[in-house]
């Protein structure tokens, strides 16, 4: 059995982008790829939890960040000494130039609106495509 890919969103609590990352990760690990992906509490890395660090050392990782501070990426990099595949919301805007965050309603941290949900699905698509690429590479 293949090792699951650990997909970790940032814990962004200040803006809707953090919620978008979180929901995109749930979309991947709960519904689209439940047998191939799992998530992990990012706080465990901040705390320095040995079991969590060990899990990351043994499994491929993807970080999903809502801002340029890239907390998920940096916590993985620093604690597990591993470079994860990185996704950020900003990358999404760079890739899909037609997406203008000022033109649609993202919603809030507590409740995403249609614009925010659209980004959740797009981000989940990107993560799944990357997982496919990782799998092809392995085969």
């Amino acid at each position: 059995m293949k090792k699951p890919i650990v997909v970790i969103p940032c814990s962004g609590i200040g803006k809707a982008y953090g919620t978008i990352c979180r929901e995109a990760v749930y979309e991947v690990v709960e519904r689209r790829r439940p047998n191939e992906a799992r998530t992990l509490c990012l706080g465990l890395l901040t705390k320095g939890d040995e079991e969590a660090i060990e899990l990351l050392k043994e499994n491929p990782c993807i970080s999903v960040d809502g801002c340029a501070k890239k907390c998920s990426y940096k916590n993985i990099e620093r604690m597990a000494e591993k470079i994860p595949i990185s996704f950020t919301i900003m990358d999404l805007f760079k890739k899909y130039k037609y997406l203008n965050p000022n033109e649609f309603d993202l919603g809030t941290v507590l409740h995403l609106e249609e614009g925010g949900k659209r980004l959740v699905h797009l981000l989940a698509d990107e993560i799944c495509h990357e997982m496919d690429r990782m799998e092809e590479k392995d085969d």
Binding site: S11, T46, K69
Partner: peptide, 24 residues
């Protein structure tokens, strides 16, 4: 935390993303 910031104590609550302690 968001309810404290938005509804109950908007002028008295501060927060930070926990992983920023390591990443920041």
């Amino acid at each position: 935390v968001r309810i404290l910031m938005e509804e109950i104590k908007p002028d008295e609550t501060a927060t930070i993303c926990l992983p920023l302690f390591l990443a920041g």
